[in-house]
Nucleic acid binder design. Structure first.
Length: 263
DNA sequence: CCTATAGCCTGACGGC
DNA sequence: TGCCGTCAGGCTATAG
């Protein structure tokens, strides 16, 4: 599930709930989501201190820890989310990391399919470098010239390029479809066949689509009627023309687009 | 270096 | 009802 807009919503949620509260207990019962760290180590680093700030890069959420020389790095995989609550009966069903604060509240990282990850990292720059992540899709410094430079030499379907985290970080299956729908470009198009104008359109739509999604809490049911995300089903009416939405596997992922609007 | 594919995980859903 | 195959908005390892 979580792509850049979802993770941005999680970030704001954590900012509004889990910062500046003393952590009294730490639980991380599922070692399969702990990458390069143990429950014991997490307890050592987190107990008695506070989360102090957050930063998002692509689909990764990096959480600073007060007076610690490490950051907590969360990745949500396909099914991850955060929940802040008081009553333990409200525990979500697949808690992989739980922080208990001294105000009686809990912050849970829930990840049903365990494709997510919990790490401790020393600093943001080396983390991004190790992962080979491209610039965040909403980074102000990402201008069209940089975008164009990074895309030069790439082959394959434009949709796959948009989803490549080493190219630009944050875009996944759903939002690559939405960006290309708004740009009216067929997701199958080879990226090296796009004209300058088409590249410009894609570049602009990356920003507007992701920002629009964030402004609607990444909830597709609140998206504009002109968006295709709420119509991810074969045969659904296209929000842009009289045609119907087509489902097709592109780059191994289920893709939805309108063959009539997107040429 | 690049791209394309299989596989990792669990659970929900639809067809038989 | 129960079983089974398919699929799901992630990434990574491997082959070509």
């Amino acid at each position: 599930m979580p792509e850049l807009p979802d993770v941005e919503v999680f970030k704001r949620y954590l900012d509004a709930t889990g910062l500046h509260k003393t952590i009294s207990t730490v639980q991380a019962p599922e070692s399969r989501v702990l990458k390069g760290v143990t429950e014991k180590r997490l307890k050592t680093v987190l107990k008695g201190t506070e989360l102090s700030s957050t930063k998002r890069h692509g689909k990764h959420l990096l959480v600073s820890i007060k007076n610690a020389d490490h950051l907590l790095a969360l990745h949500f995989g396909m099914t991850g989310f955060l929940k802040y609550y008081k009553d333990p009966d409200d525990d979500p069903g697949h808690v992989r990391l739980r922080l208990d604060f001294d105000n009686g509240y809990h912050l849970a990282f829930d990840c049903q399919r365990m494709l997510g990850a919990v790490k401790l990292i020393t600093d943001e720059d080396s983390f991004l470098k190790d992962k080979g992540l491209g610039p965040d899709a909403l980074d102000e410094r990402l201008d069209f010239d940089t975008f164009k430079d990074r895309i030069t030499g790439k082959k394959g379907a434009v949709k796959s390029t948009l989803m490549n985290q080493k190219f630009i970080a944050g875009i996944g299956n759903v939002y690559s479809d939405e960006i290309l729908f708004q740009a009216r470009i067929d997701p199958n198009r080879k990226v090296d066949t796009l004209s300058e104008d088409e590249l410009k359109t894609v570049f602009q739509k990356i920003r507007t689509v992701l920002e629009t999604a964030i402004n609607h809490q990444a909830d597709p049911s609140k998206f504009p009627k002109t968006y295709i995300t709420g119509h991810r089903k074969s045969g659904e009416p296209c929000p842009g023309c009289k045609g119907t939405v087509k489902k097709e596997t592109i780059g191994g992922r289920s893709s939805y687009y309108c063959p009539s609007c997107q040429q």
